[in-house]
Structures are given as structure tokens and as C-alpha cells.
Design a binder for these strands. Structure first.
Lengths: 246, 246
DNA sequence: CAAATGGTTCGACTAAGATCGAACCATGAA
DNA sequence: TTCATGGTTCGATCTTAGTCGAACCATTTG
């Protein structure tokens, strides 16, 4: 009859240092092993194993066996979204106490949120896409326009191939540092992968920070310049990637 | 350097039975006293007092003194939103285990989310508003159109008066049972208040359920019929309310 | 095969924190 | 003022669950 017990289980699960540390580490869609996670959280591997089992049991994590390794991932985007919500509230709470400003400037500038781009540049991209009619907000959700499909193709991403995958194609995700939306879903994931493939940006080791080179950031911003919507799709740049966005 | 510790504090806070019970009770924007909350959660008042202090300290609750009573409220809509996210994930997790269907049909049909309408009827209203151009989704967020303003006025809500209040005017809120959006913000709150004032629906005691009378639900749906956008605002229905949506 | 490494299970220890009884403070009523 | 009621603070208790050492299972490598 009451709904409280349900949320207690999940919240209590996240409300532990070691587990939260692991979850945060997994926010960067990397699949990590139990020992790696143990080291990051500063506990022994048997403790982490214990925690991972619990998280899996409650449906927050998924495992993938590969040889003698077991790779752990977040169970899905919905988990990442919940964690982002929590961060939003947590940092807001902190501000009231410590009244600190930007905590980690690099993290606010650009970071990975599950598997897509977040932070200042993430919302920039999202809003530019709406501005230039690559995306449209409809009652049912986000929609990729025809010209948008061409735009992605021009930048080496075959949106049609992505659309066939099971996971939600494109959706908005609330950015906790900017408190505005950025692009998530398979499309968002593909874009981030493309950015990295082009060498515009690199992931920092063991963190969610994405560092853009000066040239890379300029290229990103240039994607939305006047030359953004050529009526003839220019496929000479690269063969369209058929990204596997599992 | 790490962001985990922050979310741990909030999550651990919610991850306790008594506290979660209190938070859920407060999801229905009602302001409740410590003893009331204690009874609901099944603990003594001193324990609840202890918990409430913690929740307040972390910025999840706000208090209001009134005579010898102290009324507790959620600190704001952001808290309610987080709780809804948690429920979404919690119930999803349950489904995997117990594979139960609709848990509480009435709750899914219509309920209060903080101070606005949620559930099946909530998302119906929201989507109708987009459909009929009462609201528009823009890059910056939701926008009330000119005709939308007239529409609200016709139904006894003075949107201009609400806009002056500090809280966010109108925004979308993700509905955990429907997994789609419903209308939140001052506008959403005013609408729900109006619905109740007109006697179309009543709040169930000690629950978030909103029960619509058959006539009430029909009236609600009729709001979006063809007679929805008269060029001349019909103010004869009632004087526009200047609702205080604190 | 044996050795090495990744991962889990088991049991015991420990610390954190939820709980309540009792005393205490504040406000309002008689 | 005295009584009653709402609320908090303090101290003691007790349970929960996070932790690690050690043993154990599984898989790959030499």
C-alpha cells in the first residue's frame, strides 16, 4: 500500500560510500572489473564483490562475463539519470553550506554522462541542435528531422543504423551542473564516440572529465556554423559508422 | 576531487524507512507536523524529530513555525522530482522480481506530485496542452502562448499573476508511472488547485491519490474540446484567482 | 599438470546509527 | 499560575550492515 519501502531499498543502496564510488565510476559507461572498482573505492575486492552483488540484485548493475573477468556496467541510462539527479540535489545542498562555486571547472566544462556528452559543451550542442532544426521537440519527445539526419550523415554518423537498435534513440537528459538539457540516447552516444574518434577530445583516465583540444572545441562549435545544412549530403568525409550502441 | 561523497549523504538520508515514509507523505505538498509524520511512519515523535532535523540540515525539508506547531514541507520541487525518479527506478526494479502489474490503479490514474497533477490524467493534460498550442516547447523550456494565457483565464486562472512569483512558472516533470511528462511549476499547481476548487476531484486523506468524480473527469477532458480557444476571453465564469503558489 | 590471477563465500569483528525512555523547553489554554 | 500539548535534547541500548582475513572456485597461462 505504501510506496516508501521501495525507494528505501534503492536509496539505501546508493547511500553507501563504496557503492556510490563504484556507481560514479561506472557513470562513464566504461565496463569495469570488480578489482578495479575495489581499488577506486579503497576497499578490498571481497567487500566490493559483496556490494556489487547487492547492486546487481536490485537491478542497478549488469554484468558481462568475459573469460575469467566479469565486467560491470550500469543497468541502463535510467540509472545514470537517477545518479545525475542525486548529484544535482547534493551539490545544491553543499552550496548552502560551503557556498563554494564551481567545484571542478573541467568537469563542468565537459564530461561524460553515462555514454554521452554533458556539461557546458553538452548543453551547447543540444541547444544548437534545436536552434538549427536538427532536432525538434514534439509532444511525444525528441525527433530527428530529415535535415538532421543529413547533418549527422555529413559528420560520419548513420542515424538510420542507430535507430534500429533497441535503446531509446534520442532523448534529453538533465545536466546537473548547467541545470539544462543535453542530448542522450543512442544518438548522443554516437556523437560522443565520433568526437573522440576524430581526436577532438580525450577522456581523462579514471574520471568523467573530457578534455577538448582547442582545435577540437573549435571544430565542435563549427559544426553548427552556416555551413551546417548542405542540401547534398557530403559522404566523402568518412564512411558512415555503424556504431554498436549496445 | 570525487563526487561520490555528496550523493552518499542524500541517498543515505532517503535510504531509511522512517525518513522515506515522511518524505513520501510530504510529496503531497501538505505541510505536516512532526507528530503526524511520526504516526504515519510508526515511530515515536522523538525519533521523527531526530530524522526531521537531519533532513532539514541537508536541505531536503523546510520548516514553518506557526504557533506551537512546526510544519514541515519539502524544500522545493527539486526534492519531489528526485523522489519521483527514485520511485521510477524502484518500481522498475520490483517489476523484475515480482513482475507485478499496476500496483495501485487509483494512484496511477491520478495523484498529486508535490503540488501538481500526475498520473494518467496528468500526462493527458500536459500532452493536450502541447497539442492545442496552449504550451510550446522551446529550447529554453516550456512557454505559455498568448492563446494559452487566454485559455487559463477562461478557466479562472490568472497566469500573469502567477508569473510574478519567484518559483519556476511552468515546467515539465517526469511521471514515474507513465514515464512521460506532466505539467509542474506554479501553473501546474494552480491548475490542480482550480480542479479541486471546482469540485471535480478530491484528495484522499493520507495518500497522494486524487479521486475524480465521473463528471469531474469529463469536465477535465472537455477543457480541451473544440471550444477551447475562444478569441474573446470569457471571464464571466468566475473572477480570476490570484492563487498564492508559495 | 602446477602456478597465477580474478572473483566469490564464509565467519567474525566492529562501528555507525536508529530507536526509545525520560527529562526538558516552548506555547497556548484554563 | 498551572496544566496540557507539541517538540527537542540527552543518554543508553541494540541491531544492522560494512569490513576484512582466510579459504575456496574458476579460468587462463606456462
Amino acid at each position: 500500500m505504501n510506496e516508501a519501502p521501495n525507494i528505501v531499498r534503492v536509496a539505501a543502496l546508493i547511500g553507501d560510500n563504496a557503492r556510490a564510488e563504484a556507481l560514479c565510476a561506472l557513470m562513464s559507461d566504461r565496463a569495469l572489473t570488480a578489482t578495479e572498482l575495489a581499488n577506486m573505492a579503497g576497499v578490498t575486492k571481497q567487500t566490493m564483490s559483496f556490494h556489487l552483488a547487492k547492486l546487481r540484485e536490485e537491478g542497478l548493475l549488469a554484468v558481462e562475463k568475459q573469460g575469467r573477468h566479469r565486467y560491470f556496467r550500469l543497468a541502463g541510462p535510467h540509472v545514470a539519470e537517477l545518479l545525475e539527479s542525486l548529484m544535482g540535489l547534493a551539490f545544491r545542498g553543499d552550496d548552502r553550506h560551503l557556498s563554494i562555486g564551481p567545484r571542478d571547472p573541467a568537469l563542468r566544462k565537459a564530461r561524460v554522462c553515462y555514454d554521452h556528452l554533458a556539461g557546458e559543451l553538452g548543453v551547447f550542442v543540444y541547444e544548437q541542435m534545436l536552434e538549427t532544426d536538427i532536432l525538434q521537440q514534439l509532444p511525444g519527445g525528441l525527433k530527428l528531422t530529415k535535415q538532421g539526419r543529413l547533418w549527422f550523415l555529413k559528420h560520419g554518423i548513420d542515424a538510420d543504423a542507430l535507430a534500429s537498435s533497441k535503446r531509446s534513440f534520442c532523448r534529453a537528459c538533465l545536466d546537473w551542473s548547467e541545470r539544462r538539457n543535453h542530448l542522450a540516447g543512442a544518438l548522443g552516444a554516437a556523437l560522443l564516440a565520433r568526437i573522440q574518434a576524430l581526436g577532438w577530445a580525450k577522456r581523462e583516465e579514471d574520471s568523467r572529465v573530457i578534455v577538448f583540444s582547442a582545435k577540437g572545441e573549435a571544430s565542435l562549435r563549427a559544426m553548427f556554423a552556416v555551413n551546417n545544412m548542405p542540401p547534398t549530403p557530403d559522404t566523402s568525409l568518412l564512411e558512415p559508422l555503424s556504431l554498436v550502441c549496445k
